[in-house]
């Protein structure tokens, strides 16, 4: 019941409540409510000047079209007053737009003191969202695309409505960008650096989450959903079993690590994806791109995590993310090795 409540139709039903328009998607954060008036101000101002200019162009074109060959034309070459006006008026308007735009932007850098801390980490091609102190970590979950029937990953991001949330954003491999159109917010996720913004979601519902900075093959599939929860739903979420943090002592630690870190590119059913499948790979002799061979053992798996481009299996392209000890410590590497072992040895397949 609770599970259905959190993932199912009810939240989708609420989606309609957030207002959308021809120009803008649903508006679900206080930043969106602050920013949209500026957007419309610029839109109407531009529309006014566009109609003015095109009206003049059309009027002059028709009125002063060549009616007789050699038609006389005006000797006007310039007009100081007019030129001053059409330089000065846009300048003043642009300064107003600048000032308004920077005000909203600068406010993103100063979250309120009571903001909920959330860490967002981008990796090819999904997000991990950690809630420090709340014992929650939302990794990607498997979804089946209803049209293609293919397995994909999706990140679900849960936030409470009405409470400021501060995001600390980073990436493990290449640039990504954490973009929530309904909040009108994005910021690049940069490896080896923290960026971020804060927001207060004010409209419960489910919204799109996109990666907005090109990051390679599955960039367009690095999507997710943002669930803005009511107070009641948020408390239910905190108590639920959703988004558990990984427990190194649990039996399925290796499998969980696989799901969070490897699944995007490596299957466990024997079919190759971006990289080789893990099924039956243990103990197998792989041919490498440079013509040599390697036996898949503890050291090879470890090297492939720490220095992925060192030995590329023939038929696959380099480009895997580096998993250093900060991302996967020794215990995690061991758990992953045990998980890969459990998928059967190369000898078994033959």
């Amino acid at each position: 019941m609770m599970r259905e409540f959190l993932t199912g139709g009810l939240l989708h039903g609420l989606l309609g409540e957030a207002q959308s328009s021809v120009w803008m998607p649903p508006e679900a954060s206080t930043f969106a409510s602050d920013m949209d008036p500026l957007f419309y101000f610029i839109l109407y101002l531009c529309a006014f000047f566009f109609v003015l200019l095109m009206g003049a162009t059309l009027w002059f074109s028709l009125k002063y079209r060549e009616k007789t060959p050699g038609q006389r034309t005006s000797p006007i070459k310039h007009n100081g007053r007019l030129e001053f006006l059409w330089s000065a008026i846009p300048t003043v308007l642009l300064v107003v737009i600048f000032a308004w735009g920077q005000k909203g932007f600068v406010s993103l850098a100063t979250p309120p003191a009571d903001a909920l801390d959330v860490r967002v980490t981008g990796q090819k091609w999904n997000w991990t969202i950690d809630y420090p102190g709340l014992n929650k970590s939302c990794g990607p979950t498997s979804v089946t695309d209803p049209v293609t029937g293919l397995q994909g990953l999706q990140t679900d991001f849960y936030v409470p409505a009405g409470q400021p949330v501060k995001l600390t954003i980073s990436a493990t491999d290449v640039l990504h960008s954490f973009y929530i159109p309904a909040f009108r917010l994005k910021r690049d996720a940069v490896p080896d650096r923290y960026t971020g913004y804060w927001f207060t979601a004010d409209e419960p519902g489910v919204y799109d989450l996109f990666c907005a900075e090109y990051c390679g093959q599955q960039h367009s599939e690095m999507r997710g959903r943002v669930h803005v929860l009511t107070d009641l739903e948020w408390r239910a979420f905190l108590k639920s079993s959703r988004c558990p943090t990984l427990n190194p002592d649990a039996d399925d630690y290796g499998e969980k690590l696989y799901e969070a870190n490897c699944k995007t590119c490596h299957t466990v059913d024997g079919s190759p994806k971006v990289g080789p499948s893990f099924k039956g790979i243990w103990g197998k002799t792989e041919s490498l791109a440079d013509g040599s061979t390697v036996v898949v053992d503890d050291n090879y798996v470890r090297e492939s995590l720490r220095n992925p481009n060192a030995k590329i299996v023939a038929g696959f392209a380099p480009g895997m993310s580096v998993f250093d000890s900060g991302k996967l410590d020794d215990r995690a590497v061991n758990a992953l090795i045990d998980f890969i072992k459990s998928l059967g040895e190369g000898g078994d397949i033959k």
Binding site: F31, M35, I97, F98, G101, Q102, F105
Partner: peptide, 8 residues
């Protein structure tokens, strides 16, 4: 060019 709008 307007910062807050560009974020979107």
């Amino acid at each position: 060019g307007a910062l807050a709008v560009d974020v979107h």
